[in-house]
Write a protein that binds this DNA or RNA. Structure first.
Length: 606
RNA sequence: GCUUCCAUAGUUCAAUGGAUAGAAUAAAUCUCUCCUAAAGAUUAGAUUCGGGUUCGAUUCCCGAUGGAAGUACCA
């Protein structure tokens, strides 16, 4: 039984004996003592006043006395400040706790079993017409971190990706490539496939814009007012008409269009795979919209038969969600083609066929909150048992100082470029600091890779996912302060101490704890280590990678203070030295586990 | 218009309803004959406004103000 439970139980017993009242064990509010007071654990006595019918001070001291008398192994002494009962926990307890943590592999993790809930997490979900940018990076990092966190809380997890490989957007790239590409390929140009396709998407847009302007000018000359002319031009421009025609040919299965589509998608996938690999994200199962949209149609027709949906005179199919407080939602266009919602229904159907899903989590930006509100209702109506409480893990946008990223204005922060720049910066920094003297260039580059990506990942994951966040390309991402490298650096320092201890033949095995008196910072650290379990639980229920990131920072900060104040290898008291080595080792272990959940690798030196 | 989300130091971020709201950064200053100074320490700086619930509110509720997103036969 852990310290918290022992105290809670004892407080319950105290209330019973002292005041004759029954309280719930779990209702005993137990927190950590603030550093300015003596003690490590604090019982909040306010909620107990109803039972005691005494003042807070008196109640606190009654219970404190009971605890020191009846739980002397754990509670050494106490003090009461206002309504807070601060408890000093015995050193013996702390050392025991440290040993437990150090001996537990992946302390705080829960192993999934065969009958654990099956959670499917969808993330990434790119369009195949342009390369990944910083917004996708946030999505991918959040999704993969979330998958690890959910798994570490004892769930079976399937990571999935839905690729939006069909639709007007990819037709635009295809058309531009046919018109202006001169047969350019990734091989011929040396460009990454996704970047190549992205360039043609931009090219389409540029030419389309020109056409629109010319056409609009012509309409205005014919006497139309400017706004209407612009609107009309958008629809009547030859390029967009060609793109639509191409989409129709695609849907009809026109082999010429299909084979071009396959070829260009392959280029893009090769590019994506490289980006995913560098980012360190992966999937267990990938779905393609081109496979799922027909399933969606089928499912919608099924709903139509059951009377869940209705058909309008023009042939389009709708769901009436006004009873749910929402609007009517289109599910099939009047020409019978499917929309975004149709596809998601189809994907859900296929997934449910493939896996007995208990819970579905969609990692998708908050701009689609409404979509998922609707999807949840529709899936529920269609009989998916997990539809009703599907989780839309809705995250905020990444903004630039100039506002939103816009591909047209060239303000998009490219994922590949950014990762490369982070690694370069880390490499340059190592050069400048002369840290690479006895390392091969290859080793330095590997460390720079971990550090550069660690900085990027931590930068993104430490922020509450719900909130919009700011990225300033001019300032770049810091390597000092509350950053990934700060945590990695501390880890590398511990690794260094451990190497030296090993060379000197110093045992890291815990000696007897008898007579060992602990420093305040040592106790703080053990307490912090213990905290990892509740933090991980919380991160699992709140779906909060940032909770893990913040924990890593707090633990690191705490350790650095300890490291600064207390010597390890120079400590002459052997018992203390071994204890500190064990403590350091356990901090390193916990940091590796916790940062690992965020997908951040820890270098043994840097 | 309607719906949803957000609002904390100059800036970027924290805080299961708990004690004097924490960090980082930017500024000034100190600490390497000492286990890695990508570190540690000191000084100064913030809860948008008005109500309510509570022993206690940055946190929960209502209203106002400001910002973002959505409200497509786009995805």
């Amino acid at each position: 039984m852990n310290i918290e439970q022992q105290i809670q139980q004892a407080v319950k017993a105290a209330v019973k004996t002292l005041y004759g009242a029954d309280i719930e064990e779990s209702s005993v509010q137990l927190g950590q003592t603030r550093s300015e007071f003596e003690g490590q654990m604090t019982v909040v006595v306010f909620p107990l006043l109803k039972a005691s019918h005494k003042g807070p001070e008196q109640t606190g001291s009654d219970i404190g006395q009971y605890l020191t008398a009846n739980l002397a192994d754990v509670v050494a002494s106490f003090n009461v400040v206002k309504g807070f009962l601060n408890l000093v926990i015995t050193s013996r307890c702390w050392v025991q706790l440290l040993q437990d943590i150090s001996q537990t592999e992946h302390y705080g993790f829960r192993q999934p079993t065969a009958d654990s809930p099956l959670v499917m997490i969808e993330y990434s979900s790119p369009n195949t017409n342009k390369p990944l940018h910083l917004g996708h990076v946030r999505n991918n990092l959040l999704g993969s971190a979330l998958a690890r966190i959910v798994e570490a809380n004892g769930n079976r997890v399937v990571k999935t990706n839905i690729v939006n490989d069909r639709g007007i957007h990819i037709c635009k790239s295809m058309l531009a490539w046919l018109k202006y590409g001169n047969g350019e390929t990734p091989e011929s140009s040396g460009k990454k496939g996704d970047h190549l396709i992205g360039d043609y998407y931009v090219a389409f847009d540029r030419h389309y814009k020109e056409e629109c302007q010319q056409l609009a000018a012509q309409y205005v000359a014919e006497g139309m007012d400017a706004e209407a002319a612009a609107e009309r031009a958008k629809q009547e421009a030859p390029l967009i008409k060609e793109a639509h025609a191409m989409l129709v040919r695609w849907e009809q299965g026109d082999e010429e269009v299909r084979s071009l589509w396959r070829k260009m998608n392959e280029w893009v996938y090769a590019g994506f795979d490289e980006t995913y690999r560098k980012m360190g994200v992966s999937f267990d199962k990938i779905y393609y919209e081109s496979d799922t949209y027909l399933e969606g149609k089928e499912k919608v027709m099924e709903g139509l038969d059951k009377g869940i949906f209705y058909r309008r005179d023009d042939g389009s199919v709708w769901a009436d969600l006004r009873p749910e407080g929402l609007d009517e939602k289109l599910l099939l266009r009047s020409d019978g083609t499917s929309v975004y919602m149709t596809q998601d229904i189809g994907t859900a159907k296929l997934r449910f066929q493939d896996y007995p899903i208990d819970k579905m989590i969609y990692v998708v930006g908050n701009e689609q909150n409404y979509h998922f509100q609707v999807l949840s209702i529709l899936l529920d109506k269609l009989g998916f048992k997990w539809g009703k409480d599907l989780v839309h893990f809705s995250y905020g946008m990444v903004e630039l100082p100039s506002g939103k990223m816009k591909s047209r204005e060239g303000t998009v922060v490219d994922a590949d470029d950014l990762m490369a720049k982070m690694v370069d910066d880390a490499y340059q920094m190592m050069q400048d600091m002369g840290k690479n003297d006895d390392l091969s260039d290859e080793e330095v580059r590997e460390i720079a890779r971990k550090v550069g990506l660690g900085a990027l990942k931590y930068f993104i994951l430490k922020v509450d996912a719900r909130k919009n966040m700011l990225f300033n390309p001019a300032e770049s991402i810091d390597f000092n302060g509350n950053t990934g490298p700060f945590i990695q650096y501390t880890y590398a320092r511990i690794a260094s101490v451990q190497r030296k201890a090993k060379e000197a033949g110093i045992s890291m095995q815990p000696a007897s704890a008898d007579g060992l008196s602990l420093e305040e910072k040592e106790i703080n650290l053990i307490q912090r280590l213990r905290q990892f379990e509740p933090v991980l639980r919380q991160a699992g229920t709140d779906y909060s990678p940032s909770g893990i990131a913040n924990y890593c920072y707090d633990l690191t900060k705490e350790y650095n203070q300890f490291y600064h104040d207390h010597s390890i290898l120079h400590e002459t008291d052997q018992q203390k030295q071994q204890f500190r080595l064990l403590l350091s080792q356990t901090v390193a272990k916990t940091l590796r586990d916790a940062m690992g959940l965020l997908g951040i690798e820890m270098p043994e030196r840097m």
